[in-house]
């Protein structure tokens, strides 16, 4: 019971601190696409894959006192930072299973910025298309972000590296 909550908590515990809801959304989406068993439903939104279910789950975890949320004013917008509380760590002790490779994966992604993770998650969202079609798609649906060809290539390389190394329990 509350297993899906516990999975999100495990991901956050591994990352340490996540700055930004967008970043958090993209990290869980990417982990899901790498076959980690997250079952939140994601749709494509203005800023890429987004899950309302995940947003609600995070709110519940904050309300329960398991996650600490700090609101920060940035230039022109608000950002939220998330960390596990002591009560959250205690909650996780009820779940003694592991998701092998998840910790390394989350730590690796947390080292990237939200813009890059938005690109990576968008590439993964369209991965059923050919690379050229994905590039075309990104140019259209992400026109404002102005991703370069090099960034898209970097995203592909990053996904490949994540896939091959996460499976071995050691991420890039």
């Amino acid at each position: 019971m509350l297993t899906e909550h516990a999975k999100v908590m495990k991901a956050l515990a591994a990352a340490g601190e996540i700055a930004g809801r967008k970043k958090l959304q993209k990290m869980i989406y990417i982990a899901k696409k790498l076959d980690f068993p997250f079952y939140e439903k994601f749709d494509f939104h203005f800023y890429g894959p987004y899950s309302e279910e995940l947003t609600c789950r995070i709110e519940e975890l904050c309300a329960l006192g398991f996650l600490h949320e700090v609101k920060e004013k940035k230039s022109g917008y608000v950002q939220y930072r998330y960390t596990l509380t002591e009560a959250g760590e205690q909650f996780l002790r009820h779940y003694d299973w592991e998701m092998p490779g998840l910790a390394e994966c989350m730590q690796a992604m947390n080292g990237q910025n939200a813009r890059f993770l938005e690109l990576v998650s968008t590439v993964l969202y369209f991965e059923h298309l050919s690379k050229d079609e994905v590039k075309e798609k990104i140019a259209v649906v992400k026109s404002k972000q102005r991703y370069t060809e090099d960034e898209i290539e970097e995203a592909y390389a990053y996904i490949e590296a994540l896939r091959s190394r996460c499976n071995k329990g050691a991420c890039v």
Partner: peptide, 8 residues
């Protein structure tokens, strides 16, 4: 209302 980069 969300933060920058979430849903519109």
């Amino acid at each position: 209302p969300g933060e920058e980069g979430e849903r519109l």
